[in-house]
């Protein structure tokens, strides 16, 4: 559905609703940081179910509040974590993703940029070394 298909009154409501999201986005980096810290804690204790849940939460939230790269990487991480529940922990993969999320936070990598592309290329290359896609 495109914006043109909403009535003027609906567009006014949508403007107000989008303001709620943009207001919440201002301090979202603090919440994202808390999630990444909790993710580290769950990985350190090898609580993979909790780690999957935190990834799901980051994936669900971050894109809404202006961090689509964090959504993309946490969704990717979630997919790689789920089989680990059965097959066991892959510490190299987990460190790679945790480090990447920390870089996203530190460098405020919200969407496409040269740094973001380089990060994704680096992650792909590291996963390829381990024959993981």
């Amino acid at each position: 559905m495109t914006k043109d298909q909403f009535t003027l009154e609906q567009r006014e409501l949508l403007l107000q609703a989008n303001k709620i999201i943009s207001d919440a986005s201002i301090n979202y980096s603090d919440i994202l940081e808390q999630h990444v810290q909790a993710l580290k804690k769950s990985l350190d204790s090898e609580n993979l179910i909790e780690a999957v849940k935190i990834c799901y939460r980051i994936q669900s939230q971050a894109g809404t509040f202006g961090w689509p790269l964090a959504t993309e990487i946490s969704g990717w991480f979630k997919r790689l974590l789920m089989p680990q529940i059965e097959k066991g922990v892959n510490a190299k993969v987990n460190t790679l993703f945790l480090d990447s999320l920390n870089i996203i936070l530190k460098d405020k990598l919200k969407s496409e940029s040269n740094t973001a592309v380089n990060l994704l290329l680096h992650m792909e290359a590291e996963l390829k070394k381990q024959d993981i896609r």
Partner: peptide
């Protein structure tokens, strides 16, 4: 589908 948007919610 998450991430959510107001347009999607309304629809």
């Amino acid at each position: 589908a998450k991430p959510i948007s107001p347009e999607q919610i309304m629809e």
